[in-house]
């Protein structure tokens, strides 16, 4: 199911990428190969948005409810301070263990624009990194242990609080669809740095902001954003102002 969902995202990604190229056609021919040929300075801008991928994912999987707010602050053409914050409520059940995790997370870090556009644009393709703190409670509401050769089983429950610190790397794109309204998505890989086992070696099976425990904690988001620029585009050289 997730694979199908991801396939949808791949297709939408291609559309976004080509849309980005098309949008840039009348103003931008291609990516500038040299750094010093960029002749404009984008104004500082604050962008706020919400993730819409989690509600879509929930409609398919029903195991993860997440509300995520995203924001960034553009300092210049290349650098952004970025943050994501949210609240997650995830559950999973099988014959041996059933649990529910609830908690919040905050991701703080930076994005760097990795594509130089010839002309000023709020579109961006970026790479970024985040430090992530996730604070949550896991309620193992039922576990069952069976033993070979003997009748009966042992069942129980417990609850644990955890704080996990992680590092996340991402690659993303943002496209201005309407003036100051941007759609964006990013793919992310996260690595818990401080992730202590709790009751009797119990591992955190779900980490808010990262997802269900896997060897490689892949995640993605898909956002709708509003950008509030502080000023206008400035030119670095007089030739550009003639255009």
């Amino acid at each position: 199911m997730k694979a199908k969902l991801l396939l949808g995202f791949i297709l939408s990604s291609i559309i976004l990428l080509y849309a980005n190229e098309c949008l840039a056609q009348d103003t931008t021919h291609s990516v500038k190969p040299k750094k010093d040929t960029v002749t404009y300075l984008l104004p500082k801008a604050f962008t706020l948005g919400i993730d819409i991928s989690y509600p879509i994912r929930y409609s398919f999987t029903k195991d993860e409810k997440v509300f995520e707010v995203v924001g960034d602050f553009r300092f210049n053409n290349n650098w952004y301070a970025a943050a994501e914050g949210g609240y997650a409520d995830a559950s999973k059940e099988n014959s041996f263990i059933s649990f529910n995790t609830k908690g919040g997370y905050l991701k703080l870090g930076a994005n760097r624009n990795i594509v130089k556009f010839r002309n000023p644009t709020n579109n961006t393709v970026y790479a970024g990194a985040r430090g992530v703190i996730s604070i949550f409670n896991t309620d193992v509401y039922k576990y069952t242990i069976n033993q070979k050769g003997w009748p009966g089983d042992v069942s129980g429950s417990f609850s644990d609080n955890s704080t996990v610190y992680s590092l996340e790397f991402l690659l993303g794109i943002k496209v201005e669809l309407l003036k100051n309204f941007l759609m964006g998505w990013s793919v992310r890989g996260a690595f818990p740095i401080v992730n202590k086992n709790t009751t009797d070696g119990f591992e955190n099976l779900y980490i808010p902001g990262l997802g269900f425990e896997k060897n490689f904690m892949f995640n993605f988001n898909y956002t709708l954003n509003y950008m509030l620029p502080f000023g206008k585009v400035k030119n670095k050289s007089p030739e550009v102002s003639k255009k």
Binding site: L6, S30, V31
Partner: peptide, 23 residues
């Protein structure tokens, strides 16, 4: 841009593998 498209494809494919069904 093609390089970027390929790069994003690669990341997404890794993601699909990471999202394999529950064991």
């Amino acid at each position: 841009m093609k390089l970027l498209t390929n790069l994003i494809f690669l990341v997404v494919i890794v993601g699909v593998i990471a999202c394999s069904d529950d064991k």
